[in-house]
Design a protein around this nucleic acid. Sequence first.
DNA 1: GTAAGATGGTCAACGTGGTTGACGAAATAG
DNA 2: CTATTTCGTCAACCACGTTGACCATCTTAC
Lengths: 158, 158
Amino acid sequence: MATADPARPGFALPLLLLAGFRTLIDDLHTELAREGHPELRPLHGFVLQAVGADGTTATELGQRLGISKQAAGKTVDRLVAVGYLERVDDPSDARRRLVRVTPRGADGLRRSAEIFDRLRAQWADTLGPQRVTALEDDLRAMASANWFRLDVPGWFGG
Amino acid sequence: MATADPARPGFALPLLLLAGFRTLIDDLHTELAREGHPELRPLHGFVLQAVGADGTTATELGQRLGISKQAAGKTVDRLVAVGYLERVDDPSDARRRLVRVTPRGADGLRRSAEIFDRLRAQWADTLGPQRVTALEDDLRAMASANWFRLDVPGWFGG
DNA sequence: GTAAGATGGTCAACGTGGTTGACGAAATAG
DNA sequence: CTATTTCGTCAACCACGTTGACCATCTTAC
């Protein structure tokens, strides 16, 4: 990739944030594949987490992820196909199809959390724990100052 | 989006990095659209920058971006269609088609740099200049410690 | 000088993660 | 009972990536 021009300091920030994110995600999925979850793709962890322990519907999942209900439905299809989600009829509303995390999905989610914890520990080994915390605090401060939209609408400009 | 579980601290880091990156990119393109560049998509800035002032070929562009030459060629097609890049024959090698940034492309690139500078200044207003610098330094330290792959191979796990 | 190999660009088929529009079935409001 | 809303799905499409195949051209070796 083209390196940032030192005369344009603004370019470095997005590049570094992206590189950090990508590295964490790549490392996560390398490790997940080693632990028996090679089918889990980068976005799937976010989707599993958005489904949550209580289950949800495709429409509501779309709202949580900031994507259309159709896109959410397709993503659920894929995760059902690889065994991480399941669909069950809602006895109280025949239109709805509840989406639930399967035991395999829960295992993937649990392992993701553990791996992220270990990766964060690697950052702490390199930077020192207080600098990692400071980094998170700074980003959280930007989020609180209303600069960030944490609801992740579509990953890129879509 | 699902909020991070406080008992799993590792989840926050990728989420915050992604949110910061996405916010910068979204703000950039909102402002670029206002300044006469609505066609510029999130990845296009990276591509324009990778082409550089001297121009390049689709194959070499693909190597720089870590994608296939076919994918690079398609991206060039789109940027040519909207007037940000142009293709010219290489007189010294009839196989090669040089890709060059047009004046309009250079304008978009220049404005991108200016907007990023302004966005960084907004961060400095919120966090204080030294904390923004510290944040960049920390991320750069992770990159130097060989955790990061700055060459951006494909944006997601692709 | 020509045959053989490496390189640049393109075409085709496909996968994934999105979009919008239309529409049937079921629930709800009046 | 009818009108409206909501849930899910189908179909068509777009952006961005992949592999494999292929032709044209440049380069190397003999």
